[in-house]
Design a protein around this nucleic acid. Sequence first.
DNA 1: GATAATACTGACATAGTTGTCAATATGTGG
DNA 2: CCACATATTGACAACTATGTCAGTATTATC
Lengths: 230, 230
Amino acid sequence: MTSAKPQLKDEIDESQPKSRAPAQKRVRRTADEARRLILDAAEERLAAQGPEGIRLQDIARDVGISHPAILHHFESREGLVAALIERTTSQFREKMFTLINDTMTGGAGSEGLIENAFQVLSDRGTARLLAWLLLTGRSAEGTGSHKLMREVADMLHQNRMEIARKGNRSAPAREDTVFMAMLTATAAFGDAIIGKQIARGSGLDPEALARYRKWLANLLDEHVAASTRE
Amino acid sequence: MTSAKPQLKDEIDESQPKSRAPAQKRVRRTADEARRLILDAAEERLAAQGPEGIRLQDIARDVGISHPAILHHFESREGLVAALIERTTSQFREKMFTLINDTMTGGAGSEGLIENAFQVLSDRGTARLLAWLLLTGRSAEGTGSHKLMREVADMLHQNRMEIARKGNRSAPAREDTVFMAMLTATAAFGDAIIGKQIARGSGLDPEALARYRKWLANLLDEHVAASTRE
DNA sequence: GATAATACTGACATAGTTGTCAATATGTGG
DNA sequence: CCACATATTGACAACTATGTCAGTATTATC
């Protein structure tokens, strides 16, 4: 401000030896490993602080690297976000599928299913990420989550049909199954985001939340029983 | 940049006639009106584009004012956000209360209640705003939404007790009522955010969504009937 | 009509964030 | 051991958004 013109660099360096370490060591990871670490950090920040928590510098600091390294691996901030979405949704898909398969073969009631569905969505920032995704309108296409719901609904319905057939009961309407899936999904999703606040606001202790899930599973079982009875 | 010192305005005006309109008209609103317009615009942008949609310049453009005007009325961006939260939550409270009161006095089943709860949350950006609020951890205190849930639960439970008393039936557990409220709230909330995507993904048409709400109301009514029967 | 209060504006300051680039360290394969 | 590929870095550039300020227009008050 006072005088003018930025001095040449050499001059500065020579006049101020500073504390530049002569041989600066670097940690060098494989590309995959680096990407993984970066995504982990981004995920954590997103879950903790929301969308605005994804700032290259912050994430870089978390990982212990410089922010251009992130750009090197993901091209751009958007690239990072896309990669995070990709990873999260595919993990989610996978979990849901194995979850449903296990429940089906096990033949148990919906209790385990509900319990796990809630778990999966609460886990890490899954629901939060999906929420943000939808809030910012990034969901539209590409994530393949469209197919997911339909596939899940199909699996559930087939299972129900089979049970009805075995018991010589009338087959339930497909829409009824879809509605059940819809209720479970929205409830689990809502729970992951506002569940804790609502529970606290209603004066429920943490254990009550566990009871609540069982209660919900029961509610659905009741419904299934009632609708296939006659 | 070249020389220095910003010239006095008069000089500039005289030397450079430019295209500056001699008498520039201004719209001058009352403070309240201005605040309202600004909040409306902010709300709309939030609902449409998510958190990042709240940018002073954009909102200013929407309203047709300059961005410092917004700062004049709200001190800071955070002030604007706080005011928006305040307005939205208080509107929400109000709607919910009248909604429940009406339903109670009307004595109808839960159908109308559910229908309206979903409506209220979907309306404008209520659910989206609340979601963002929670996602960014801004909810904590101050919004008074804590009390809301408890009050709602109380009202509902009292109503249920009364009905049970009239019919000479055993009183339901309070927790059961709270769980029902919790389910409704989370489901409505989740619905407001991911409902449309899920429905589309499951192959449901828009009308199915309306049926879904009735189905849910029915499910809860069934439960109430079943739990107070014996 | 004059005066006070204030809604409003343009220009500018400042800070923070993404992205670029040339250079540097580190591991790998010949 | 050397050459090559590439993960990583510091410095810098460019942009954007918030916030400041002095001044201007408009309404209310006396």
